[in-house]
């Protein structure tokens, strides 16, 4: 029985990987680390501002998992607006605003629709994957000034394939 417990602990450690994330990784069989915020930076009232997924202002997650494993990526509850006190700043996401990439897959990234999610796969040569997210802020001409923000959650699970 002791041997069984030891085996379970070892398996969990292999899937979780190492690293020193700035945010504590969530418990579970793989880790999803929110690495960088999606930053629209300065937004002018009445003027839409877009951030491409390939920009250094795009949101970014780092995933650690099992090499070769297939996973499902879902943005749950994509925000329709950012908040500042009682004010809302509308934001939207196009069908090409998200992308994922593995280090073993070269520099090419796979673009996907953040509203529908995507099935991705870890490379056989690495247990890492990056997921990036752009978007567009759509301030009204009378948009109240201030710092706006909202959470963006990325859900990840193995498909079993």
């Amino acid at each position: 029985m002791k041997r069984c417990v030891a085996a379970v602990l070892l398996f969990g450690a292999l899937l979780s990987g190492g690293g020193a994330p700035a945010q504590a990784p969530p418990p579970g069989p793989s880790t999803v680390w929110g690495q960088r915020d999606l930053r629209f930076q300065t937004v002018i009232p009445g003027l839409p501002t877009s951030v491409d997924w390939s920009s250094n202002k795009a949101g970014q997650w780092l995933l650690r998992g099992q090499r070769g494993a297939e996973i499902q990526l879902d943005f749950i509850n994509l925000p329709s607006s950012l908040q500042s006190g009682g004010n809302n700043l509308p934001v939207s996401f196009s069908v090409t605003d998200a992308a994922w990439r593995t280090p073993g897959g070269g520099t090419a990234a796979t673009v996907f629709d953040p509203s529908t999610g995507v099935t991705a796969r870890f490379s056989n040569r690495s247990n890492l994957m990056w997921v990036k997210l752009g978007g567009t802020a759509n301030p009204t001409s009378g948009q109240a000034g201030g710092d706006y923000s909202a959470d963006v959650d990325l859900d990840v699970y193995y498909t079993g394939n």
Binding site: D37, I44, D74
Partner: peptide, 26 residues
């Protein structure tokens, strides 16, 4: 044991970032 701990949708993990913007005074 390995088969039992292979995760599925019920074991999804979540990572959170923030989307931020600084709107100038109109």
């Amino acid at each position: 044991i390995a088969a039992m701990v292979l995760p599925t949708a019920a074991f999804a993990v979540t990572g959170t970032i923030q989307a931020t913007a600084n709107v100038l005074t109109p």
